Computed example of a mutant assay.
Amino acid sequence: MSKHYFASLLFAALAATSLATSAADTSKTAPPKAEAVQVAELGKIDLNSADAATLQRELSGIGESKARAIVAYREANGPFVSVDELLEVKGIGQAILSKNRDKLRVD
């Protein structure tokens, strides 16, 4: 009988250790990336802080070249004062702005 008791005790100890290790592993999450923070605030993308990759990923009709053009416009002309100023960027028209207006903000 002592063999069964010892085996059961050993099994319980190993199972508890395994569960504790699994719980510890899931608590080690990486901090959010800057791109995620840019989008998470107010659920909108800030045209004055979003990088090209974020713009391309989050906006409809914005590919790599248009995303880079938005960032280049911001660097050359300073921060956007309104979402409508996006129309000044080459390749951005009213249709693209209309599709994305609710996703954008300017801080």
Score class of each variant (00 low, 15 high):
residue 45 I to F: 10
residue 104 L to I: 05
residue 16 A to H: 05
residue 26 T to H: 11
residue 37 V to Y: 05
residue 66 K to Q: 09
residue 35 E to K: 02
residue 87 L to T: 10
residue 78 G to P: 02
residue 44 K to M: 04
residue 93 G to F: 13
residue 101 R to I: 02
residue 8 S to A: 10
residue 42 L to G: 12
residue 12 A to H: 05
residue 60 S to A: 11
residue 97 L to H: 12
residue 28 K to L: 07
residue 13 A to G: 11
residue 21 T to N: 10
residue 72 A to N: 10
residue 3 K to T: 09
residue 72 A to K: 13
residue 101 R to G: 05
residue 53 A to S: 05
residue 6 F to C: 04
residue 8 S to P: 00
residue 52 A to W: 08
residue 2 S to M: 12
residue 92 I to A: 09
residue 52 A to G: 02
residue 30 A to N: 04
residue 66 K to I: 00
residue 41 E to W: 02
residue 17 T to G: 14
residue 4 H to Q: 13
residue 84 D to L: 03
residue 25 D to P: 00
residue 7 A to G: 03
residue 27 S to K: 11
residue 81 V to S: 13
residue 15 A to H: 04
residue 30 A to L: 12
residue 92 I to C: 11
residue 19 L to I: 08
residue 57 R to P: 00
residue 93 G to K: 13
residue 41 E to K: 09
residue 37 V to A: 12
residue 93 G to C: 04
residue 74 R to P: 01
residue 10 L to C: 11
residue 29 T to G: 07
residue 71 V to T: 11
residue 71 V to N: 07
residue 50 A to I: 02
residue 53 A to T: 05
residue 74 R to G: 05
residue 97 L to W: 10
residue 11 F to V: 08
residue 58 E to F: 01
residue 83 V to T: 11
residue 65 S to H: 02
residue 81 V to N: 15
residue 24 A to D: 07
residue 73 Y to A: 12
residue 85 E to D: 15
residue 68 R to I: 00
residue 44 K to E: 06
residue 4 H to L: 11
residue 1 M to E: 13
residue 43 G to L: 08
residue 99 K to C: 02
residue 91 G to Q: 09
residue 72 A to Q: 12
residue 38 Q to L: 10
